[in-house]
Design a binder for these strands. Structure first.
Lengths: 244, 244
DNA sequence: GGGTAAAGGTCTAGATTCCAGACCTTTACG
DNA sequence: CGTAAAGGTCTGGAATCTAGACCTTTACCC
């Protein structure tokens, strides 16, 4: 995570550029900027964050080095969210995954638990407006024609379910986890097959929430969020195989 | 909360002193320093946090103004955690509680949900070492002779239960919530009666976790953490009555 | 009582970071 | 081919943080 350290012990001062970079990468991970989108101009970002342009530039440099964005000069230029992202750095992905595997195990476990709780609570608390929003999101997801759309509608569906808990903090935690997972493993594991695999889960989950069946919702959510984990597991297995 | 803001929008730079103050107040809320304890000297804190002494002093000034600590000069002096704390500022407590009541509703709701999840998960995952730790903590709590001891053992019992989930992030979330609740409402509502009221819950919760009964553990945890909320509700009711 | 040690209280000079703004360079559009 | 919209660069000043020396208060110990 990026949060409060254990208690005493050294205090690491985050530079302004790092903070801006964190905000931006989170926004990207949450889908507020999609692949190929142009971020606001440096001057606009500086105004938005109420920060100097140099700090914004430091953040963009950081994101560009990480391969998350690509900067183009001239009129109509700017910082664009990279479409490739994953393929560009096979090696760094390997290193990161194999080195931090235990962290990821814990992260996905945590996510599964929290998302189960969200599904359970949503099933207990959803009102008519929530149910309408869930139905709409499910329809949109079913109608999506390509992985990019599917991803957007998938995100949206889970967001409206989280909102149905009527607890802003849970919604925030949901988004925090989403961004952390997205940033941690990039988009590589999310292929079309994954969404095919997830489709019945989505329907089942949504129906359980709509029906107010908390136990079933929690159970399906647990399975559903194990998909990402399994995809990642397969990826790591493949990498391990390739290497030996 | 003290967490990641929504997305875009102004970036508030936290001064070093604020960060140190936050760490210290969290440590106090988590019980790492008890009432009347002396914090490390300014020079020691500066070394611990790897920060200048001036910054530590800024943090201490802040905490002193908030009434959380009291600074005494001379040999054997230092920063002491205030015992009174609550009584000193009836008025500010009123203002804070009445103004932020909705925030607190949401916070306690969140806490109840998360703690239920923790209890449920602990019941499913506790191993023999966890069970032994839980039994020991429960015995210690039952044997406590005064509210201060009861508070310490109460904290400890919930911590070992959280650890039984075998997920470090859940443990951290548990501690984060504990510190937030402690700081938000001070210690006033925690009287001896509260602990008396909580005693059967503790035993029931511990037994459910020990027996691996996830549903019962989750249910009891939900009731248990409603106690704090109810105590606060009574407090607010009393304040409202006094004022009218 | 007097000496001393351990704390907080104060000050200063220097380094670092951040900001505001001007100005340059590149590039596309009209 | 001129202009507008972007990124790239530089500079001076403000704010913060640091390191360290030195002062003041207070309790303990001889």
């Amino acid at each position: 995570m990026a949060e409060e350290p254990p208690s005493l012990g050294p205090l690491r001062a985050a530079t302004t550029g790092e903070q801006v970079a964190h905000r931006l990468s989170t926004a990207i991970a949450l889908g507020e900027f999609s692949l190929g989108d142009r971020l606001p101009s440096e001057r606009e970002l500086a105004a938005l964050f109420e920060v100097s342009r140099e700090s914004v530039r430091a953040a963009l440099r950081r994101l560009a080095e990480a391969g998350l964005i690509e900067v183009r000069r001239g009129r109509g230029g700017g910082a664009f969210v990279r479409a490739e992202w994953a393929e560009t750095s096979e090696n760094s992905v390997r290193e990161a995954l194999l080195a931090q595997w235990e962290d990821f195990e814990a992260l996905f476990d945590y996510r599964r638990l929290i998302e189960s709780l969200i599904a359970r609570t949503a099933a207990q608390r959803a009102d008519d407006a929530d149910r309408a929003a869930i139905r709409a999101a499910l329809t949109a997801f079913d109608a999506s024609a390509n992985p990019a759309e599917a991803r957007r509608h998938d995100t949206e569906l889970h967001l409206v379910i989280a909102r149905a808990t009527h607890n802003a903090r849970l919604v925030r935690l949901h988004q925090l986890l989403l961004s952390e997972v997205s940033l941690g493993v990039s988009e590589e594991p999310y292929t079309w097959e994954i969404y095919e695999e997830a489709r019945p889960h989505h329907r089942g989950l949504a129906e359980a929430v709509l029906a107010g069946d908390a136990e079933r919702a929690a159970g399906i959510a647990g399975e559903h969020f194990a998909i990402t984990e399994n995809a990642l597991r397969r990826l790591v297995a493949r990498i391990g195989r390739d290497r030996s």
